[in-house]
Design a protein around this nucleic acid. Structure first.
Length: 400
DNA sequence: CGTCCACGTCTAC
DNA sequence: TAGACCTGGACGG
């Protein structure tokens, strides 16, 4: 669930399913969760949600009842509203179900006063997510790229001397102090659309930016003009706003391969995890998907013994370039890569950036070998109209 | 069976 | 700049 669009969609979901629903009693936490207890209990309360970048805030609002003059007397005092701020980690989301169909990994739960009751659950398989009772938006996170656009722009143009911008643009895009809401698939999609190599210095791309959105009223004019550097930067911050909003407007659940409506999102992706696109690890071990030139700051050193072995092997595989694909790149946490130690590791070769097949083609079906020039297997799931559109768009890019 | 990979932070050497 | 924190799906043997 977890980049800006998914967090916002989660807040919309909560507001929709909890509209008019009365919750009651204590908030309950799973045994296994290491997150804090939420010391809130109330006879009757509403739940509403808002989002900002990669956080969601739930507001637990006691219902004051004129019909219940005992309310104050009983509790000694009326419960106060409480905000709980969530981060979703890699796998967090909200679900509203009957109590007897609680999802696995429902780590924080809010119960309705119905009979049988229903439950709003914060579900988080991997438990990288977190919540904070009486929470506030995390102090070090910047303005929301989607819903605080003006402040977002300003925060960047007024801090360009920050050393954070010494890094490659693709890595800076994950810095939540400046790009609150951008994650791994969004950075790939945004840079791909502007044809910006991922490993160019961020400041080179952002330098000369205006606080005002250059592409506002004059949008058409600006875009049809010769794309200069400054133009692209204007576009970059604008796309950091517009691309996530596209996902929100897809109306599905965003990035969530487990869900039925994932195909719409998958068809929307132009670069991330798309067959034929290149990918490599950035300096933090995160996979960067891109097309064309990686840029001057691309990591040169392979840290993957397996990748080296593969490369050697492939040196003799001259028959089919298409097959190059899938090295076994490092896992983000390279746990036991030491196992293989041998001598392979010392002879580090360049970690070649090469096109590869998407791993996410779970079609075990052994069809006739598809020689389709990419554009291809993954995309085939979308409607033919989308395929055409996608291809055309790419052709335009290539023609440039 | 085992290995690799995943939409993200965190903190410790 | 590494690990640590976790579960589970895809894929290979």
């Amino acid at each position: 669930m977890p980049e800006g669009p998914e967090l916002h969609l989660a807040s919309l979901y909560v507001n929709k399913v909890c509209d008019g629903v009365v919750f009651t009693g204590p908030v309950r936490k799973s045994e296994v969760s290491k997150n804090p207890d939420v010391p809130f209990t109330c006879e009757a309360y509403f739940i509403t949600a808002t989002s900002r970048g990669k956080e969601v805030k739930l507001t637990l609002m006691p219902i004051k009842s004129d019909d219940d003059p005992d309310q104050r007397a009983k509790a000694g005092q009326v419960a106060q509203p409480m905000d709980v701020v969530f981060r979703f980690g890699m796998s967090g989301y909200f679900r509203f179900t009957r109590e007897d169909e609680l999802p696995k990994h429902a780590h924080l739960r809010f119960y309705t006063n119905e009979k049988p009751c229903r439950v709003l659950s914060f579900v988080d398989t991997r438990r990288f997510g977190s919540w904070q009772p009486n929470g506030t938006w995390q102090a070090d996170r910047g303005p929301c790229v989607m819903f605080e656009y003006k402040e977002f722009r300003e925060n960047i143009v007024t801090h360009l001397s920050d050393h954070a911008f010494d890094r490659p643009i693709c890595e800076v895009l994950l810095n939540q102090k400046y790009f609150n809401g951008i994650g791994n698939y969004l950075r790939a999609e945004i840079l791909f659309r502007l044809n910006i190599p991922p490993f160019v210095p961020a400041r080179d791309v952002l330098d000369g930016l205006q606080t005002e959105d250059l592409c506002g009223d004059n949008k058409v004019k600006e875009i049809t003009r010769k794309p200069k550097n400054k133009q692209e930067t204007g576009d970059l911050l604008q796309l950091c706003h517009a691309v996530p909003l596209e996902v929100v407007n897809l109306g599905g659940k965003g990035y969530d391969p487990e869900k039925a409506d994932y195909s719409g999102f998958e068809a929307w992706l132009q670069c991330y995890n798309v067959d034929g696109m290149k990918s490599t690890r950035d300096h933090n071990g995160r996979t960067m998907w891109f097309a064309g030139d990686p840029g001057p700051m691309a990591p040169k050193n392979s840290k993957s013994p397996k990748a080296i072995k593969r490369v050697k092997k492939e040196d003799h595989d001259y028959t089919d370039r298409k097959k190059l694909g899938r090295r076994g790149p490092e896992s983000t946490t390279k746990k036991k890569a030491m196992k293989e130690e041998g001598g392979t590791k010392t002879t580090k070769k360049e970690n070649k950036v090469c096109p590869k097949e998407s791993k996410r083609k779970k079609n075990r079906e052994v069809n006739a070998p598809q020689r389709e020039t990419r554009s291809s297997t993954r995309r085939r799931k979308s409607s033919s109209a989308d395929i055409t559109a996608g291809s055309q768009r790419r052709n335009v890019r290539m023609a440039k």
